[in-house]
Design a protein around this nucleic acid. Sequence first.
RNA 1: GGGCGAAUAGCUCAGCUGGUUAGAGCACCUGCUUUACACGCAGGGGGUCGUAGGUUCGAAUCCUACUUCGCCCA
Length: 885
Amino acid sequence: METKSTENPLPSSYDPKSVEGGWYEVWEKSGVFKASTSTEKPAFCIVAPPPNVTGSLHMGHSLTYTLQDMVTRFRRMQGYNMLWLPGTDHAGIATQNVVEKELRKEGKTRHDLGREAFVKRVWEWKEKYGTIITRQLRRLGASCDWSRERFTMDEGLSKAVRRVFITLYQEKLIYQEYKLINWCPRCQTSLSDIEVEHKAVQGHFYHIRYPFVHDPADGLEVATTRPETLLGDTAVAVHPEDDRYAGLEGKSVDLPLLHRRIPIIMDEYVDREFGTGVVKITPAHDFNDFQVGNRHQLQRINILNPDGTLNENAGPYKGLTVAAARKKIVEDLEAQGLLLKVEPHQHNVGHCYRCGTVVEPYYSKQWFVRMKTLAEAALKAVAEGETRFIPESWRGEFERWLNNIQDWCISRQIWWGHRIPVYTCGVCQIQVAAEEAPPACPNGHRGNMAQDPDVLDTWFSSGLWPFSTMGWPEKTKDLEIFYPTSVMVTSWDILFFWVARMMMMGLKFMGQVPFKEVYLHSLVADAEGKKMSKSKGNVVDPLELIDQFGTDALRFTLTSIETKQRYVALTNQKLESSRNFVNKLYNATRFVLMGLSGGAEFKPLSPSDQARLRLEDKWILTRLSIVIVEVTKDYEKYRVAELSQTLYRFVWNEFCDWYLECIKPRLYAEADPVEKGLAAAVVVEVLDNILRLLHPVMPFVTEELWHKLPGKRESIMKAQWPKNMEDMADLNAKDKFEELKDMVTAVRTSRSELNVPPSAQVHISTKDVRLPVGSPESTLLKTLCRVSEITEARSRPPKSALAVVKGGELYLHLEGLIDLKAEAAKQEKERQKLEKYVLSIQGKLANEQFVQNAPEELVEAEKTKLQESRDKIIRIEHNLKFLES
RNA sequence: GGGCGAAUAGCUCAGCUGGUUAGAGCACCUGCUUUACACGCAGGGGGUCGUAGGUUCGAAUCCUACUUCGCCCA
């Protein structure tokens, strides 16, 4: 394949711009992102949640796209025919709002342009700005199959929308009806129930007297939080068993201000405990009152215009906004002595999820989807395990919502979106749902068919996304291969908006669930754990972070905090730590390459080398084999933070801190080319695997470094996922090396605590330790802790410090350097620590139940540990006596 | 009112199906131009895992109740 030039030598610290730049273009051109329709490989498919065309990359996209790209690259390397299908959403209200805002700057409204010109203008806007987000996703490294990119208003997808609508309409699952719906006066459209956000607002409870018609001096005390709705009252209600109001049935009250006579009705909906036990009934402006009104055949008086001002039914208050009317009405009531009291009161108020305006319940004719049967199918599929939730706990949330589902209001009174494919005959009013404008109505009236003016809820088309993007309603090869998709990766906040609707639509129209797994990941919050929002001003721009830390560091940060919590905090500290990690990996590679250059020709590790491997080689290869198994499982199970952490620790704390330190002398031993070649072969083998394991998370730096390693190399994207290396694993060698590590640490601790100058070379002697003088292990000890000489001793040499290790003792010959007090204190500390430990094990072993019930290996392990610790204590005590004498 | 999530080191958080001397990063203390990396190296201090019960031979982990914080739905 064509590649970026990787000839230049590596500078001494990692520079994300020069490392990351260029790779994306190479990848995209090479065609590795493309899924195949003619292959034997098993399919794996992710359909990407389409960002709004109006959008620009925010932290939420960064996380979700990093996670999807991670899965995509991982599965591709595992040998799957991977399809990651991208696209954008027309985002009806949001996009229309953006373009209207632009128009406002020109002093115009959409009505000045007219529908057709306005929609044209939105399309122009989309052509101009709609690619911003997809360009930014490329910057993040997203390896989507752009050849299959879709937009929800593409002709094909629009056709799918019409087909679905018409089918549901014909099956009577879509219907049109006058109902009370949520209305946003600013967007001037209806909203579905879940598009309303309820927020607690500090308001007031207004107590108003409604005088009796039969006794105007007396009346009922009604409490309300929205006094202006009084204008639409058509009754007041009390509980039928409320003794306070017995005998009032059939009587009426005089509606204040408007002086309409309205009945007192009895309804069990009224809560006797709450307020005065009297409720005003406004069927056209309150959901509960609407129900009551239906039960009592009350008149529905709409007092609002679509823009939220009061209409002619408001009499003298006509033209005022709700807020102004409330103020005026309260004043007027007070002037008439009808306002009894005002109390502060906190209550929930619905707000438009797009613009934040207070939403009004509004009586109007809208289109609805009947949800019950669709929801039942989705519930059944989940119950039968056809779709699995990750984390599992979201399943309950999903089921609760579907079990209580209300019909979905799908019509929107805006212009940008899929227009409802229903035509009404201007002559006979007959309605027809059709893909295209019919020339005549079924009754034969020609040229009079008018299309419904409304458009569909954006989420209606999103609900079809997993199959509409693959060409449905045509029978396509993509659908055949990739549907149902493998996993839906998205954040939990759109579980109802999107995931649930896709489930229902997928089952209804494809007969199968749209995805086998739903992985609901976290939401990224700011460093204080607060949700990011424009109004709070705490939004972090991922592109700035990419400039500052690099894409790989950002991606690694996101994966290491993705712990399936609801919110995860993004901190600079974490970003710095990730950047340092990328730098560490980069420098480790640089070091390995420096060791390789100038020597004999590089030969990769082969099974025949196994007999000649040193202890540290066996250890690192064994650890690698364990890490491969762990990390592969973590990738498969979306344990993202875990795999990031495992790799971080393996690379930094094992590979760099120990293995590279161990092989330094071998790699630089020009005199022994065979030994050097072996060390080189092992270190390259391990690094090669590390790069592949990290590639799904850090695509750029791993690709760059991959090409620097010896051997002819194609893109790492085409490399195979690391295989289990059981043949290379040697658990005995691993244990033995870990013992050696303990010895090294013990010597270092002694040196440090006894203030031995770091540069001083020290003579060590050993007692009862398996560390043959002159063995490779003893050489390692020498290199790793600045030891000049190792000898064997029968007893503790004078003026020496002690390090007790498993099975034996190490003595540091310190000549005049030793501080006896410090030495005694150090050993006393060590002794106390061990005694505490011994006590806890003794407790366990003294417990017969434990010995009987616990697994045998565990009991054995405890016994061994007890013995080892006791041995150490004896040695320390012996030496403490020695120090005293 | 119903439901969900969180509570572990000074801070931010890991800890998957119950068994490790409870871990990491940052911060802190001591020392270091050691054949890549000071975006580094070595060593160290710091936690009765929110509270109270229970199950178990064994609980940070499972169960119950409670407290505090956050979120969703009505």
